[in-house]
Each structure stands twice: as C-alpha cells, then as structure tokens.
C-alpha cells in the first residue's frame, strides 16, 4: 500500500530507527511499511496516524484509489 511515511519521517528529520522506537516496532517493520512491502494492521496504522497527528487516510493511500 502506498503511503507518505517516508516523507512525514523526513519532515521531522527522524531516522527509521527513531520512528521505530516511537512506534515500539522494529526498524525492519518501518522499512517494510515505508516501501509498501507490508501493510500494517489497523491498530498499528492508528498508532502511526496518532504519532503524526493525522488521519490514517492522510498517510496511507487506499488501494482502490492508489
């Protein structure tokens, strides 16, 4: 699933490890989500959205619109 995670992370000057620690996940998870290899569960998607203070659909692009 396409997403803006890398852009949002770069805007805050966070490394993948920084974001991983804030989300309490592994750096591999952040990399897999950023590159679209792995779609996060709904609870993790909410954690990501809440961390950036955005709605989920402002970060992740719906596959039907993508």
């Amino acid at each position: 699933m396409n997403n803006r995670l890398k852009v949002l992370r770069a805007e805050r000057d966070w490394s993948q490890q920084d974001l991983a620690e804030r989300l309490a996940v592994s750096r591999q998870s952040v990399n897999a989500i950023e590159t679209g290899k792995y779609d996060p569960s709904l609870p993790l998607a909410f954690r990501i959205a809440e961390l950036f203070d955005l709605a989920i659909e402002a970060i992740f692009t719906s596959p039907s619109k993508g």
Partner: peptide, 8 residues
C-alpha cells in the same frame, strides 16, 4: 513476538 511484521 510483539512486532507484527517480524511475527508475520
């Protein structure tokens, strides 16, 4: 394993 990606 608490990390859902690693668990997958």
């Amino acid at each position: 394993e608490a990390d859902e990606y690693l668990r997958m």
